[in-house]
Computed example of a mutant assay.
Amino acid sequence: MRKLLLISTVVFTVLAILFSVLPMDTLAFLPIGIAIALSLTTLLKSDENQKKFPKILLIISVICSVFVLGKTLFIKDEVEVDQKFEQQKIETKQEAKKELEELENDLE
């Protein structure tokens, strides 16, 4: 039973690390929470001399949790308006209007 818990804990800890690095925002808390719960369960099921690895996995999961929380609170996603692109759109519309006017004049 301990080996199954330990393997599950390792898998969810790796997922927690991946989700923490990727821009998943609060969705990363799902594997982190599962990794923390499994780490605690594995820690409780382990003998005294087998508790080192589950403690390391628990610490990694908590660090991922703090990292995601900090990233969510302190990093703001902002969309910046591209002035050059807006200017090109206006110029393209003006050119299109001129071409249509020239076509209308040619048809008359």
Rank of each mutant, 00 (worst) to 15 (best):
N105F: 07
L58K: 04
L73G: 07
L103P: 02
V68P: 03
L57I: 09
K76H: 12
K98T: 09
K71L: 03
V62H: 05
I90L: 12
I75M: 05
F19P: 08
D25K: 14
D82G: 06
V81Q: 08
T41Q: 04
T13K: 10
E99Y: 07
S61G: 11
S46E: 07
P23K: 10
E86C: 01
P31I: 08
L15E: 14
L43E: 10
M24Y: 01
T13D: 14
V81R: 15
I60F: 06
G33D: 02
E99I: 11
K55G: 01
K97A: 12
E101P: 09
L22P: 05
N49P: 02
L38M: 02
F53W: 04
L38E: 08
K51P: 01
F12Y: 15
Q88T: 12
V21D: 05
A37H: 05
L18H: 11
P31D: 14
S46I: 08
E80V: 12
L100T: 02
T41I: 11
I36S: 07
I56Q: 00
A28C: 07
L69Q: 00
V14T: 14
T41P: 02
V79T: 09
T92M: 14
A28V: 05
T13W: 07
N105T: 05
I17D: 14
D47G: 01
E101S: 11
V11I: 13
I90K: 15
A16D: 11
L18T: 14
Q87C: 09
S39T: 00
K98E: 10
L107N: 03
I32C: 00
Q94D: 06
P31V: 08
K45H: 11
Q50D: 13
K93W: 07
V10Q: 15
N105S: 01
K71R: 01
I60G: 05
L73E: 11
F67Y: 04
F29T: 00
V11Q: 10
T26C: 04
L38G: 01
L15P: 03
A16L: 11
S65L: 04
I60E: 09
L44E: 02
G33E: 02
V66C: 12
V66L: 05
S65I: 01
Q88A: 08
L27T: 03
V68F: 00
K51D: 08
N105C: 07
I56K: 01
L103R: 12
F19W: 11
T13A: 15
L38T: 09
Q83A: 08
K52G: 07
K51L: 09
N49A: 15
V66E: 03
S20H: 09
L38R: 00
K98Q: 13
I60M: 11
G70F: 07
K76G: 06
D47R: 14
K55D: 00
A28T: 10
E95A: 13
Q83F: 06
Q94Y: 15
T42V: 06
F12P: 06
I36N: 02
A37D: 09
F29W: 05
L107K: 13
K51M: 09
L18S: 15
D25T: 15
M24A: 12
N105E: 08
Q94S: 11
S61E: 05
K45R: 12
K45A: 10
V21A: 02
F67H: 04
Q83P: 05
S39R: 01
K45V: 03
V62N: 02
E86A: 04
E91Y: 09
K97D: 13
F29M: 02
F12I: 15
